[in-house]
Design a binder for these strands. Structure first.
Lengths: 207, 207
DNA sequence: AGTTGTGAAGGTATTCACAGCG
DNA sequence: CGCTGTGAATACCTTCACAACT
């Protein structure tokens, strides 16, 4: 059924949105979702229809949020078990992410932090275990970590990314202002603020 | 000449990349850029050719990084003058961004921080002026701030976004886990880590 | 009235292939 | 030969319009 890339991204966001609804079972219509997301309702319906879902998910009144969310997650490749993530580089930014509240109710779990400065690891208090960077090769496979959030100083970005790839990570989110070259077998997402702002400005300009 | 949205985004990233090159005038070929970005060289050439640029930018050996970068920025709507940004919400994450080093050599300038907690404003040391949130309506137009980086607690995200829109901001980057509904006249980019990870996972699944 | 679901149409972006130049 | 630049072909994604159902 071959989920296209843009459609997959929309669905992923949809799932996140649905997971945030407190009222998990009152039906949501595609027009309601349009209001929440800004995407036209027919696009949403098309996206959803592409991932052949069980009958029970949609009624004539709309979709069951909870069922739809899990159905989407399933189609995106992960079922019930959560995906493990880690933060690499615990400076201001990295350590701020250690306390990020957004992971609850998401399929992602933050389960480790790494920093090359052993001192810092001992000082920082965190609800997840912290390790020195040189233990990545051991820890990442052991904890089955699939995604890494890169917050090291820019000069170390490329190198650390390569090491992460070597540890078997599937995806890297790069918060560093440095640009990380594509690495075979790893999906990289550049999220340097400048890039995001640039994207915004570009979209404004392209009207 | 109508720059398409995806192409505009690629160009914006290209510009950022070019601005980071220290060697500003040795020519860069499109195949070299392919290596750096992962986009096929012909896509890059197409993108560039869409923005009718002065002759001097491209030689038979490639493009002049610096000239190309400025040409792109120009086409994306801003010439020499930088675009002003602010951070709203100076908790762990927001205050970490106050020290973000990535703005140098970019067309964006961080020029203010806002927080509703007046105490916090006085305690924090920053190289940009900090203001209480209730002054946004006054400060944002005065400093000609076009973009806002949202780092408030999730419950306040939607509200603060609306207020920012009311202050005349052109774009909002939402780092909050909460989802901000589309607002007329403002471009919003959701960058909650969960969304970014979701996007990554989606792209991996969509293969 | 409201809803989902879907084949067909339409538009956009990417890829190809090659001309033209240094 | 490497490079850029571009019309033409292709593949892709979105939009439309309407059927089917409650």
């Amino acid at each position: 059924m071959a989920l296209s890339k843009p459609s997959a991204e929309r669905l992923s966001r949809l799932a996140h949105l649905l997971e945030q609804r407190h009222d998990r079972h009152t039906p949501v219509s595609s027009t309601e979702l349009e209001r929440l997301t800004g995407w036209p309702s027919h696009t949403i319906r098309k996206d959803i229809s592409a991932l052949s879902l069980p009958e029970t998910v949609s009624t004539t009144a709309g979709y069951d949020s909870h069922l739809l969310a899990t159905a989407i997650r399933q189609s995106l490749g992960f079922g019930e078990e959560t995906q493990n993530c880690c933060i690499v580089g615990l400076g201001r930014l990295g350590s701020a992410f250690l306390e990020y509240t957004g992971f609850t109710d998401s399929p992602f779990t933050l389960c480790a932090g790494f920093d090359s400065n052993v001192n810092r690891i001992e000082i920082l208090k965190a609800s997840v275990p912290l390790f020195p960077t040189f233990k990545m090769k051991e820890i990442i496979p052991r904890l089955a970590i699939r995604y890494a959030i890169l917050c090291v100083p820019p000069e170390q970005a490329q190198n650390t990314a390569l090491r992460l790839a070597d540890c078997g990570v599937a995806g890297i989110v790069n918060f560093t202002p440095a640009i990380v070259r594509p690495i075979e077998g790893v999906e990289i997402e550049q999220v340097s603020i400048v890039d995001v702002l640039g994207g915004l400005a570009a979209r404004l300009a392209a009207t």
